[in-house]
Design a protein around this nucleic acid. Structure first.
Lengths: 202, 202
DNA sequence: AACCTTATTGATCATACGATCATTAGTTGG
DNA sequence: CCAACTAATGATCGTATGATCAATAAGGTT
């Protein structure tokens, strides 16, 4: 009954193996947390533990690669262009931003690793949120104030409030694992519309 | 220069010592996570590691006591009465609920341990959020629908949306540790007012 | 088919951690 | 002041974990 899979000694090109390890590590650490041990990860990959240390000098190096893969290889460069397109309404632009952004927060691995690293005190998270503030929220706030009948009414905290409501959908789903809206995109549209209504921006 | 504090061998009554350990454990695990080791905790308490195991049979027993202290010894029993007071406006009741609730989410230890245990897959978190839904959100939704000019407009997801925006203030503060509104209570009031305005409930 | 390179392995080390237990010493009651 | 009780300690055990390294074998080259 011991269906122990025999070790797969097939050789892979180093860059391919490295990619496979990082992919597996992202999924693994998203599941069990950044304290997950390297033997369990290796078992999940179907390789030996020592192989990991042929590709990464230490566990924290591997975690660096995980961060890199989860955060940086994503779409953040598209964001500025989403907001500067003056031909579209504010509603369309906000929705378009969250259409892109929701690709992150509704993704199991991204949400969990972001939370794990945040709890571990990672500087990365602060940088990320500051980036968001600079690239999205500050210009968006200016646009909204310009378009609003009561410019002083809308403030930065309101944007964070909208943002928090949307992010919380991902948190409920991937961290607390409670039932969530069957259609997150629709939920986001509702949230944005309510928000704009409250500020008379529709 | 070795200012190693000599061990404080003063004896304490068991219940007092137990309370001291639990208090310290709450603060400790909130800081470093549920994987924090018992030796570091003992050092922080100024006692030896083995003393912890005189009061708790295992680390997971200690964590149970931590959960108990953080979650259950709190105020959740007051909640129902906050909403059934028909003499007050919906606005007042929602604000009063969040006035109480914010005592939790703006508290460093509560927020972090709730998040740590959620990421660890604790059933506790699901039970807690379900409790919130049953005791607060379902009756509140009924009240709002009864008072709204468009009863179908307000839905359960909208309440979670408001809730998420408010909770996210605590998350930013205690988990991502980024600058937050200097006056959280005021931020909550703003969020609730915007929300009620969007649904024409003011 | 023999050879060489190197990806992969298995054995191993040092340390960290949860847990145990006999010993020590602070406190109380007589 | 002494004896009894027990809170608290210090030494120690077994295992888990990150990391190392010589040995092995897969896959390409000639």
């Amino acid at each position: 009954m011991d269906n122990e899979t025999a070790p797969d000694r097939r050789r892979l090109p180093p860059d391919e193996r490295r990619r496979q390890i990082v992919d597996g590590a992202v999924a693994f650490f998203a599941d069990v947390g950044l304290d997950g041990n390297t033997r369990d990860l290796a078992k999940r990959l179907g390789v030996t533990q020592s192989l990991l240390f042929n590709y990464f000098a230490s566990k924290s190096d591997l975690l660096e690669a995980v961060y890199e893969h989860v955060y940086l290889n994503r779409l953040s460069d598209d964001w500025p262009s989403l907001l500067t397109d003056r031909d579209r309404s504010i509603r369309d632009r906000v929705l378009q931003f969250y259409d892109v952004y929701s690709k992150l927060i509704f993704q199991y691995e991204w949400m969990r690793i972001f939370m794990f690293s945040g709890l571990a005190g990672a500087e990365l998270n602060r940088r990320y949120l500051d980036h968001l503030r600079q690239v999205i929220f500050i210009p968006l706030l200016a646009e909204m104030q310009a378009a609003s009948p009561h410019p002083d009414a809308v403030q930065m905290e309101d944007l964070w409030n909208l943002h928090g409501g949307i992010v919380y959908i991902g948190i409920r789903q991937h961290i607390y694992q409670v039932p969530c809206p069957e259609n997150p995109t629709e939920a986001i549209t509702r949230a944005v519309d309510r928000f704009l209504t409250a500020f008379e921006l529709t």
